[in-house]
């Protein structure tokens, strides 16, 4: 057991995977000698060798295609796309190829790739370093989409993702890499070391895909969140003094519908929080599911707090980022509804 931030926990996951399975290899832009622009693969090339963790040309569609070909051969590639904002050139390879290979080949070929990519705002990254494109992947049959919110889960979920035989989009909330940011940007930065989820085992363990975590039990209202928004939701629960039950979804596909349903049936109220733009966001799917599964238990309209339907604006970082004030307001509306 050691205290790790999310970068160290992800690095430790890959270190464990490389040590255990010679079929695991890692590649992406700047991930080799340098260790990645966020340092997530630091030291892995030196420790495991040049062919286990290496740099690629800047061509995301080519990087993912290379991973699909390797996976079809029988390897288990971990692909880093430097920012989720850069993943769009690879979209065809992910959607038309990786996601459908098992199905269209009658189970003959599979593409067990894991695509790691930092996503989300709160870093003044502007429109090309802040996006949250998860709904573009949850909409696609054949993909799993995973988003951790803390170091312990990040390592356990990444190991699960790589060991899973389906292609996985693994979105890393980059604002959480070095600390549990709760949206109060005007307060001092917190390190992970003060957070219980920074206690990370050194060796192999898994956090299973498809299992949500109740990170704050409560009776008044259910909050569904993932990534950085889990911490924002926690801050809002504290600020509002409303006894919210905060659920960290951890995996969007497959979704832990049982945990969600049990909670909303208990509280009768639901607030959904994500950074991504609101229209056709994953919150719309969550809202529909809660309505379908819990309609007779609902005592108030389902609330959604999301990014505004604009490109991510640089100077308006904190007007755009759905912070605790907006979540608190949604919690109050849900309680009044």
């Amino acid at each position: 057991m050691a205290i790790m931030n999310m970068v160290q926990a992800l690095n430790s996951a890959m270190d464990v995977l490389l040590s255990r399975d010679p079929d695991v290899l890692i590649f992406g832009e700047d991930v080799g000698y340098f260790g990645g622009v966020f340092r997530v693969t630091e030291g892995l090339q030196k420790r495991h060798g040049l062919t286990r963790c290496f740099d690629t040309p800047i061509g995301e569609a080519g990087i993912v295609a290379m991973g699909i070909g390797m996976a079809a051969y029988g390897l288990r590639p971990i692909i880093e796309i430097q920012f989720a904002d850069y993943i769009y050139p690879a979209y065809d390879q992910i959607v038309s190829e990786a996601a459908r290979l098992r199905y269209r080949s009658g189970g003959d070929f599979t593409a067990p790739i894991t695509v790691r990519t930092p996503y989300g705002g709160g870093i003044f990254g502007g429109q090309t370093h802040s996006q949250s494109p998860e709904a573009l992947f949850t909409h696609v049959a054949g993909l799993k989409t995973v988003i951790p919110s803390n170091p312990y889960d990040a390592k356990g979920l990444l190991i699960s993702a790589v060991e899973c035989d389906d292609p996985v989009i693994f979105l890393e909330p980059k604002r959480l890499y070095n600390g549990p940011f709760n949206g109060h940007h005007d307060r001092p930065v917190q390190p992970w070391s003060a957070h219980p989820a920074s206690q990370v085992p050194d060796g192999h363990y898994v956090v299973p895909l498809g299992q949500a975590a109740i990170v704050r039990p409560g009776e008044a209202v259910t909050v569904l969140a993932y990534g950085a928004m889990v911490h924002v939701a926690m801050a809002a629960a504290q600020d509002s003094e409303i006894d919210a039950e905060v659920i960290d979804l951890r995996t969007l596909i497959p979704l832990d519908i049982e945990t969600i349903t049990a909670s909303v049936r208990k509280t009768g109220r639901c607030v959904i929080v994500h950074e991504a733009t609101r229209t056709s966001g994953f919150g719309a799917e969550l809202s529909a599911l809660v309505q379908e599964h819990c309609f007779h238990h609902l005592e108030a309209p389902i609330e959604r707090v999301a990014g505004w339907d604009t490109p991510y604006p640089h100077a308006f970082e904190w007007d755009y980022f759905p912070g605790p004030a907006r979540v608190t307001a949604a919690l109050r509306r849900a309680m009044e509804g």
């Binding site: 569609a61 080519g62 295609a65 290379m66 991973g67 699909i68 070909g69 390797m70 996976a71 079809a72 051969y73 390879q93 190829e97």
Partner: peptide, 8 residues
């Protein structure tokens, strides 16, 4: 491009 990955 997938063939190149397979070959690699």
């Amino acid at each position: 491009s997938q063939a190149v990955g397979w070959a690699m």
